[in-house]
Amino acid sequence: MKIIVCIKQVPDTTEIKLDPVTGTLIRDGVPSIMNPDDKGGLEYALQLKDQYGAEVTVITMGPPQADDILREAMAMGADRAILLTDRKFAGADTLATSKALAGALKELEYDLIIAGRQAIDGDTAQVGPEIAEWLDLPQISYVEGLEYDGKKTLTVRKQTEEGYQVCKVDTPCLLTVLASANKARYMTVGGICDAYGKEVEVWTADKIKVDPSELGLSGSPTKVKKSFTKGAKAAGKVFEVDEKEAVELIINKLKEKYII
């Protein structure tokens, strides 16, 4: 079984804080991490490797420093890593991103493609299903459980608003996975040493058979017209009082607003 996991390097948005004066984001010094849902997807792939000897390839599209998360993935147990990087990919929206990734995936063999449900820096959840469309694969998103019969069929637990569904799909197919679905393993010391001994394959736009007009900014139907910070709402009053006074203040406020 050959599995490819699509991963993304993202800023650790839980570390992003607001400047209390200007209301803008403080991004300086924010560390980069492997996107959590992608890591959950990688964990499933590695479990299938443990059980069935699957071969696991990780791929990312991003700037050269995205090498870090590919090495981390190899230290966790991935066999092969591909970095898709080229200035021609810059400014890509989800559609152009998915085109480039699908172009690279077409150069590879796979039975199963796994992506994270969404990346924490954009939260769109679009690239996985878009790749599935380009590759004409059935997709199941919001996966929180996975079993393989060792031959061809996957039984998948898919999260829904009301609970979950149990779905069956044959390979080849594409799944998008939730980080909460499993607990990703840690890198091992041996794995870290190996990961830095192994090669990360670097692919540029020339390696994939996608028309350059479909890549990057020129291949992106959506464009950011403007971005702006939301004017910070005027903060209310903050009281440092004992609990008796606090209760009085709160009750008066609720009365003032006709809530009680």
């Binding site: 804080k17 209310g236 903050v238």
Partner: peptide, 25 residues
């Protein structure tokens, strides 16, 4: 940072304030 968006902020221990508020209500 929650105080930046709150209409009213209380600096204190919720474990004391919440039961007292519930009792008062």
């Amino acid at each position: 940072p929650i105080f930046e968006v709150a209409d009213m902020g209380i600096v204190g221990d919720l474990h004391k304030i919440v039961p007292a508020l519930t009792a008062a209500l």
